[in-house]
Simulated scan of single mutants.
Amino acid sequence: MPGSPLTGIGPFGSISTVASGSRAFTASTRVRDWDGRLRRVTARATTKAKAVAALKAELATRDQSGAVGETVTSDMSFTALAQLWLEDMKIDPRLSDGTKAVYESELRTLVVPTFEHFALREISTARVERFLTAQSIKSYARAKHCKVILNF
């Protein structure tokens, strides 16, 4: 028996309001955030209409970016995503400078040339598996680094 259809990213469900105290109302709804998770969002005000308006204002100002400074979409090129990843990796305190240099080098020489002409929606699991299999034939370490880079 099929369930209800998946809520799209960004849209919210029906808004419900309940009295929450002597002169307050709480409006709430569920919204599917940009990370794919459903979350309950609430707002309080003195009237039902003001609570609904406050909730809609809250929904309009929620963070909608997939990456710092730029929204990641399925139509984005792999090269653009790789550049965003490099910028994020360079400021990651968990990685040593040597590890960052290795990942950057292997991203630029191995991974990007393979996927540079694809949009993100075109990069399938099968395509990635073929790439990793080809890398593992050449070198286990190379394949492992490529997998880590693609998983980041």
Rank of each mutant, 00 (worst) to 15 (best):
P5N: 05
S14F: 11
S16P: 00
A24K: 02
A24Q: 04
F25A: 00
A43Q: 03
T46P: 00
T46R: 13
T46M: 06
A49Y: 04
A51N: 04
V52I: 10
A53V: 05
L55F: 01
L55P: 03
K56L: 06
K56S: 02
E58G: 04
S65R: 14
A67H: 10
V68N: 06
T71R: 14
V72W: 03
V72E: 05
T73K: 14
T73H: 09
M76Y: 02
F78K: 09
F78H: 07
L81Q: 09
L84P: 05
L86Y: 04
D88F: 13
M89H: 10
I91E: 14
Y103L: 12
Y103H: 13
S105P: 04
E106P: 05
R108E: 10
L110P: 07
V111E: 02
V112N: 06
V112E: 13
T114N: 06
T114G: 00
E116K: 13
E116P: 01
H117F: 12
E122A: 09
E122V: 06
I123F: 08
A126F: 15
A126Q: 15
A126Y: 15
R127W: 12
A134P: 02
A134Y: 02
A134L: 08
S139M: 15
Y140F: 05
R142Q: 08
A143L: 07
H145D: 00
C146L: 08
